[in-house]
Design a protein around this nucleic acid. Structure first.
Lengths: 220, 220
DNA sequence: AGCAACATGACAGTTGTGTGACAAACGAGC
DNA sequence: GCTCGTTTGTCACACAACTGTCATGTTGCT
């Protein structure tokens, strides 16, 4: 609960605890953000009129960091505020003074809905007749699907993300293997294997080309 | 929209269409239920004071058949009604007369939440000769109904909802089992069982395929 | 030619996945 | 409350796929 009025904070906090919730309460948006980073809450109640960062901004900041359900608890019964709060990313809006039973029912309804965020939406890549769909785990060469191993797939995605640019073996080791050091020959081996699968003539690569002395790049 | 007052039905319907929504409106709970069975809506607006089956009962009936988001639009600004409606399974409660902008914002907020909820989708899926009717709890392979357990069914729905995309074991654990952590082999076992039922040759799956190192996906 | 950079095939250890067995938990029906 | 069939989660094992290393061969540059 982010609420600057001490009396409301104390009484509403106690009332919610009576309803079976565990409540942590702070007085400012700044404290709330810090607390949420320290130990994320299931649900956040936030007042709109706060000193310093106001409620609207606080909602936007919280939204940027996660999908936590947010309920606005405001004294202002104004359609503009309601709309603005919901636009900012709040999930519900209740007017103070609020009946604890109602707030509790809304909390329950909200938490019934609250779940994890959707999958990471990465875009698809298309380079000539090479198509890469990261989220589908698919790679197509001239419309034909080829099956890559995870390492090959990650390597290809990394190259695709920087298509046209040369990536050094060291960069690839760091990004694909998450090795800070390591044998750079390893990259060669996997590039070779990848070529077997995506090149028409693996010995004369057209798509995944070597830049001697620098590294590899994926041709646009 | 389930609303017995002709004037409100017409004006609110038009106003929402101006906001970009497609609206179907009926005057009674009975009609609403029939309409929802015929062609499920994304979201339902329901008045509480209805002739015949009242709003509360209507909400309970709708809830029994699916997870469709429900917003109560009532003239009665009474905490008891709010709590009762939310308890019955409504997702939100707004007071008439309602500002269309506010209703629109609440609709958006609700649908944003609904999208990430693990609810059973309202529409049916058809992938080749695999048909899934989440609301009816039916799955048909080549027109033949197969009986799935609840876990298998939820797993299939989750995969169907993201057909063509790879879902990791972790994502499936979170969405189907609502586990934050857990043994990922559990997913394998259930995928295996599901394959026994929906694949012609479970050892060489065509519909529910493994993407090695990434997870599983349902083929479109 | 000489050298460094790169490619490639083989191989053994590791990892990922499928599957059957089993016991606990559940649930419908009485 | 009880019973019995079903569902669920865990485990162990088998097997296939993948990975990283190495040795050896090839290429491109000076």
């Amino acid at each position: 609960m982010i609420e600057d009025d001490d009396r409301i904070r104390a009484s509403l906090g106690l009332a919610l605890e009576d309803e079976g919730y565990t409540v942590r309460a702070v007085a400012t948006a700044e404290e709330g953000m810090a607390e949420q980073r320290r130990e994320p809450a299931d649900t956040i109640l936030v007042d709109l009129m706060l000193p310093g960062i106001d409620g609207f901004e606080c909602i936007r900041l919280l939204r940027r960091e996660g999908e936590v359900p947010i309920i606005v608890v405001s004294a202002r019964d104004d359609t503009h505020d309601v709309v603005a709060a919901l636009e900012a990313g709040a999930d519900d809006y209740v007017i103070k003074p609020v009946a604890v039973k109602e707030l509790s029912a809304r909390l329950r309804a909200l938490r019934r809905r609250a779940r994890s965020a959707p999958a990471l939406p990465t875009q698809a890549y298309l380079f000539g007749d090479l198509e890469i769909r990261p989220q589908a785990g698919e790679v197509l060469v001239r419309g034909e699907q080829v099956s890559l191993t995870r390492t090959e797939f990650r390597l290809l995605c990394e190259l695709a993300e920087h298509a046209g640019l040369v990536l050094s073996r060291q960069q690839l080791l760091e990004r694909v293997w998450e090795y800070d050091y390591g044998d750079e020959r390893l990259v060669d081996v996997h590039v070779g294997r990848l070529r077997q699968k995506i090149e028409d003539n693996p010995a004369g690569p057209q798509r995944l080309v070597t830049v001697r002395g620098l590294g590899y790049k994926l041709h646009r």
